[in-house]
Nucleic acid binder design. Structure first.
Lengths: 157, 157
DNA sequence: CATATTTGCTTGACCAATCAAGCACCGGTT
DNA sequence: AACCGGTGCTTGATTGGTCAAGCAAATATG
C-alpha cells in the first residue's frame, strides 16, 4: 500500500508482516479446527471443554463464576450461558456460595469429570496435530513467555 | 501421531502447556484489543479493515467474493454480509463479473481507499504495541513459517 | 438442443458471544 | 435498624458469524 498520507509510521518488515498475517490466519483457523475435531470425536465443544478443564484443576472441583469466566476468557454472561448448557447435560451443578449468598459455585459432577477424561486425549491430539507439531525445534519456553506478555500486558502508551 | 482416541497419550511438557495456554489467551484478547483500539480511533472494525486491505492490494482494487472470503478467513456468507455493511457506508461497490454473470466483484471505492489510508497507521500501531513488541529478539522468520504451516496445513493423519 | 448437474453467491434460520439493564445481597454510614 | 452505593450474577436485546437451502447462470450430457 502506498503511504502518501500525512502521518506515515514505519511500515512492517517483511518478516513482521508475514508473522502478523500468519497469526491472523491461525487465530481464525485453529479454534474452529480443534473444536471440529473434538465435536466429531466426542461431542464436547471447545468452550465447554475449557470450562470443565478449569474446574477439574481446582482442589474441590468448584469455582466462582467470576474466576471461571476469567480463566475461560469469557464474559460473565457468556460464562453463565456456558454453565447452563453444561448443567442441562449433567456435567456441572450449581451451588450457592456459602460465604456470600449472591455468589454461585460451578461444581464439576462425576459425570462431568468422566466426560472430561474421555475428551482429554482427543483434545490433546488435536492440539498436537494442529499446532505444536509445527513448532518442533523452536524455543517453546521463549515463545510461551512472549505470548504470555502479549496476552496479559496492557499496552505501553 | 494419528491416535485421536488412544488410551493414554503422552501429556504435554510444561513448556508446551504454557505455550498452548498463552496462545489461547492471545487468541481471545488480541483481536478484541486491536479492534477496540481501531474503533476508538477511526471507527473501522477489524473484519471490515481486513476486507478493504485485501481489496487495496489487488492491481485494480477489485476481487471476486470467493477469493476475498478466503483471504479474510471468512465463510462466503459472512463475506457477503461484511461487503453489504461496507457497501452501505459507501466504502465498497459491487459489480457483476463480466466473464461470468453469476459472479460479483467487490470494488474498493475512492472513499474506501481514503478510509483505509486513514485507518492504516492506527492498525499498524495497535499491532506493534499489542503484539510485535513482545517478540523482539526472537526469530520472526522461523516463527512466521511455523504459523503459516499451522494455519494452512491439513493435519497429517 | 433440452435437460441435468454444478457453481457462485445470497438469503433464512440459528447460535454463541457481547453489552446493558435488572435483581438480590453485602457492607459501611447514620 | 434503615438506608445506599457497590458487587455477583442473570436476563434481554443485539451482533456477527455459521450452515443449509435457494436461485440464477454456466457447463456437461443425452
Amino acid at each position: 500500500m502506498s503511504n502518501t498520507s500525512a502521518a506515515t509510521p514505519q511500515p512492517l518488515t517483511p518478516d513482521e508482516e508475514a508473522l502478523v498475517r500468519a497469526l491472523g490466519q491461525v487465530m481464525h483457523v485453529l479454534p474452529r479446527a480443534i473444536d471440529a475435531d473434538m465435536v466429531g470425536d466426542r461431542q464436547l465443544p471447545l468452550t465447554e471443554y475449557t470450562a470443565l478443564m478449569n474446574l477439574s484443576e481446582t482442589p474441590d472441583r468448584r469455582m466462582r463464576m467470576n474466576e471461571l469466566a476469567a480463566l475461560c476468557h469469557l464474559s460473565l454472561s457468556g460464562m453463565t450461558r456456558t454453565i447452563i448448557r453444561l448443567e442441562t447435560q449433567g456435567l456441572v451443578r450449581r451451588e450457592r456460595c456459602e460465604e456470600d449468598a449472591r455468589g454461585w459455585n460451578a461444581v464439576l459432577t462425576d459425570a462431568g469429570y468422566a466426560r472430561l477424561e474421555e475428551s482429554w486425549p482427543s483434545h490433546l491430539a488435536a492440539v498436537r496435530r494442529r499446532f505444536l507439531q509445527h513448532f518442533e525445534g523452536l524455543d517453546l519456553a521463549a515463545l510461551a513467555r512472549a505470548f504470555q506478555q502479549a496476552g496479559t500486558a496492557e499496552p505501553t502508551d
